[in-house]
Structure formats: C-alpha cells, structure tokens
Write a protein that binds this DNA or RNA. Structure first.
Length: 274
DNA sequence: CGGGCGGCCTGGAGGC
DNA sequence: TGCCTCCAGGCCGCCC
C-alpha cells in the first residue's frame, strides 16, 4: 500500500495528535510480523514515555520518545496506523495497540503482516541494518538529475528497477515509479545506460513533482490506505497510467499497456514513453 | 557484484 | 453460493 507519499501523509496527520502524548501501555496481540515483535522491549522502552517527534525515512515512520528511544513502524503492503478512542472495539487485524494518556489508542493493523514494529535507541537508528544502506531521499535537497546520473553510472538494467531500488533512491514504489516515468516520457524498460543528462533532469523533476502532488492530495487510496485520522487519499484520481490498462492515454489517446517487469505490473503509454 | 526471482501473508475480485 | 485462481502499494535473501 504505502509508498513515500502515504507514509508522509500519515506522519503529518498523526503529528498533531501524538506529540506530547504519553504511552500508558502497549499491547501486542500477534507478534508475527515481518520480524517478530519484541513485546517486552516494546513495553519497557515505550511505557510511561512521551512522544516527542515524528520523522520519516524512506517508507519508515520514526517516532522519537523520551528516554532516548525511537518507535519504528513500517506498513509493508497492508499496514495501517490510525487513532481510535481508547475503548473503541479492536480493528480487524489490530496486532499492536498503543494506549495513550490522551484517552486514545494508536492502532497498528496489518492483515498480511509484512509490516514492522520495533524500537531502537535513537542514536542507533542511522547505523541499524534496516537504515544504513538506504538511498537518497527524493524530496531532499541533494536529489536532482546529476545525482541520479551519478547513481546510475556503471549500471545497467531497466530504469523502472533503478527507480525502485531502495539502496539508491528511497520511497518510490510501483505506483509512483510508473507515474514519474510517464511524466518524464521515458519507457520503463529503457536501460539506465541509455539515458542522457536531459532525461535524467526531467526524470528527477518528475519524481519530485509526482511525489509532492501525491502528498498534497493525501496519498493514493486504491483499497485501504488511510491516514492517522482514517481519511482516504485522493491522488488515485490523478494517476495517469497506474492501474489504467486499456484506457486511453490522457495525453495522446493511445491505449495504456500493462507488462510484467521483475514480477510486478508496469503501466505505461506506448505513445508518450520511449 | 548486480540483477532477477521466489517467498513471505491475507483478502478481494473475477471466472466458472 | 462456492470454489478456484490471480493479483496486490514492500522487502529480503538466494541464485545465477
């Protein structure tokens, strides 16, 4: 479900409700996520602590708490993190619940259990194996066409795989890779070795523009994305190619195609993307 | 070393 | 209605 825009929308929507709140209790009902949830660590590191800051790195949500620890949440494919009244009935697949002194409950639910909930000492986050090899933030100041060109130097393989390689660039998943390539007029199968400076510049701009627009519109809700307040996003109506196989291209009128690339669907316009 | 692919899970959609 | 297959927004590790 969630790529960078969805996690950023989630972060922004939760921030106002969570900063300053204290965790009274953590309940783990099903510890079997992508990695087993460490119940005792979660409780001892979060219990009684206040939430101080919400950050995002790649598709991870990072919540710094007093006591110098950080709660790390990754939504995987089907995860959600929402606020509910403390006594509200459990959501389906609500595997982890954080009971707050505001009378509300932060609910982590994840039917497919590809998500992640863990804590680390704040000072250890950057060097942790999950974070140390992450690539550049596409909305950060250092990301531009020249940066992409450097990252692509000496590489081969299709540009779509390059865009989705989290060791190079983070946060761009299957939806936004397709949308950015459409916006830049680049065919998803084009080899990175055959992209010139002008195209890299356009692609970098497209990535930033698409991600930024998606954030402004509350993310993409295809099935189940919700922000912290339970509100869906609206960017799905702005998608030009993703999920639109057989429809007419908004720009040139030709039919959008779907192909499979490294096991995943790729949508593109054969007229606009070369 | 880098790229491709299967596997991890469950649920929803669509075909028969 | 029910059963089967396919497909899904991410990521890791194995294989070549």
């Amino acid at each position: 479900m969630p790529e960078l825009p969805e996690v950023e929308v989630l972060r922004r929507s939760l921030e106002g409700h969570l900063i300053g709140a204290r965790v009274e209790r953590v309940e783990v009902r099903d510890a079997r996520l992508r990695e087993p949830v460490d119940r005792r660590r979660l409780s001892s590191r979060l219990g009684g602590q206040s939430l101080e800051r919400l950050r995002r790195r790649a598709k991870y949500l990072l919540i710094d708490v007093t006591g110098d620890h950080t709660l790390i949440v990754h939504l995987g494919m089907s995860g959600r993190l929402t606020l509910a009244p403390g006594g509200h009935p459990l959501e389906p697949h609500e595997h982890v619940s954080f009971y707050l002194d505001t009378g509300r409950r932060l609910c982590f639910r994840d039917p497919r259990r590809f998500g992640l909930v863990l804590t680390l000492p704040t000072e250890d986050v950057a060097a942790d194996r999950r974070f140390r090899d992450l690539g550049v933030e596409p909305l950060g100041g250092e990301f531009d066409g020249a940066c992409m060109m450097r990252l692509a130097a000496g590489r081969r393989g299709p540009v779509k795989s390059f865009l989705m390689n989290g060791r190079l660039i983070v946060g761009v998943g299957n939806i936004y890779a397709a949308e950015a390539l459409f916006a830049a007029g680049i065919h998803p199968r084009r080899s990175v070795a055959r992209i010139g400076a002008g195209s890299w510049h356009r692609l970098a701009e497209s990535v930033r523009t698409v991600l930024g627009a998606a954030i402004e519109q509350g993310g993409t809700t295809l099935n189940d994305f919700r922000d912290g307040d339970g509100s869906p996003g609206y960017f799905q109506v702005s998608l030009s190619v993703y999920g639109r196989e057989g429809e007419d291209c908004v720009r040139c009128g030709r039919q959008i195609r779907r192909v499979v690339q490294t096991g995943r669907s790729t949508f593109y316009c054969p007229g606009c993307q070369r």
